[in-house]
Simulated scan of single mutants.
Amino acid sequence: MKQAEEQYQILYKLQPEPVTTPEIKGYDFNQGVDFDALLNSYANFGLQATQLNKAIEIINKMIHWRLGPNEENEDPNTRCTIFLGYTSNMVSSGNREIIRYLAQHKMIDAIVTTAGAIEEDLMKCISTFHKGDWQANDKEIRLKAICRIGNIYVPAANYGKLEDWLLPVFQEMYIEQKEKKFIWSPSSMIKRFGERINDERSIYYWCAKNDIPVYCPALTDGAIGDMMFHFNYKQDGLICDILRDVVALDKKAMYSKKSGLVILGGGVVKHHIMNANIWRNGADLAVFINTGIEYDGSDAGAKPSEGITWGKLRVDAEYVKVFSEATLVFPLVVAQTFAKHFQEAKRV
């Protein structure tokens, strides 16, 4: 009892200093529905809304430095290279159209993604995905030849259609390899896929058209790998050299005057981009959007600051992690950054 009284006296005598940080305050809908004002209010909203506002701020800085000489940036050698990384579920979802928009208008400089994100973009040009149900009876939909990605349904027939389209492309590539002694890499394969699909709905069509390299270090980890197996089972010898892309990506990071990272999800796409930035002693600006937690020691869940210890982020880097599933927030981020800059430039 005496100890509790002593602690109370200590607290009572404390002279609190005034808190000078902004007041937490939400949006007042009595002002009407103004989406710009709503998203700007996130700065002092608290919790993940404030993290989202920080992500918007950092990406706008990337865009500012990427645009080249301006009032604050007279030197074109300070141009920022923007690396975009995303997992396959982003292309399964409606974020595919958001990413396509960025590639279409040359708003990014390089992509790192997974095999699923390549094949599903191509499949969506050939066929369709559909809204499904998280609580689906998976045994029943298996019997209906439907594959499930969360609440997204993918008709299994899509994979047959992709194979029918892809095997002749592999044959064409195999002939070029034999006759021209050309060794393919994942990025050169993806560029050829984008050229051959010839569909403006495709992310990789626009990447091929706008010369945006797409790196996929695990290109064989999916249906594309299965189809490579099928092709090589009948006609052995098609080669895909991943080392060429490691060299290309690392050099792209190494020679960047400033480096900005936008990464949706984790795993190989996050690590591959960050690891490349070791060659320049870390990225300058970074935004991570995923739901991973740090307690299992995974790279996906790691706090961004952990990357500083590896030299993946600079000691003075600006970075933020938004704990969110990316379909919820990435369209909002693009609306307040890339799309806003593009629309403003059109009005000038």
Rank of each mutant, 00 (worst) to 15 (best):
N95C: 13
I126A: 06
L102R: 03
T114F: 11
M123F: 05
H105F: 13
I111H: 04
S92F: 14
Q104D: 06
E97L: 12
N95W: 01
S127P: 04
M107P: 00
A110E: 06
I99H: 02
E97R: 10
I118C: 05
T113R: 06
M123N: 00
V112G: 11
R100L: 04
G116C: 11
D109A: 10
Q104C: 07
A117R: 02
I118F: 11
A103E: 08
H105M: 09
D121Y: 01
R96G: 04
S93C: 09
A117W: 02
A110L: 14
I99P: 00
M123R: 00
R96C: 06
A110N: 11
S127W: 11
Y101P: 00
S93Y: 07
V112R: 07
T114M: 07
T114K: 07
D109G: 09
G94V: 08
L122F: 07
C125Q: 08
A110H: 05
K124Y: 00
T114Y: 10
M123Y: 01
I111G: 02
S93A: 15
A110R: 10
I99C: 01
E120C: 12
N95G: 05
H105E: 13
I118Y: 06
N95M: 15
A117L: 05
I99N: 02
A110Q: 11
G116R: 03
T113D: 10
E119F: 14
A103L: 13
D109V: 12
S92G: 06
D121Q: 00
T114L: 09
A117D: 03
A115G: 13
D109R: 10
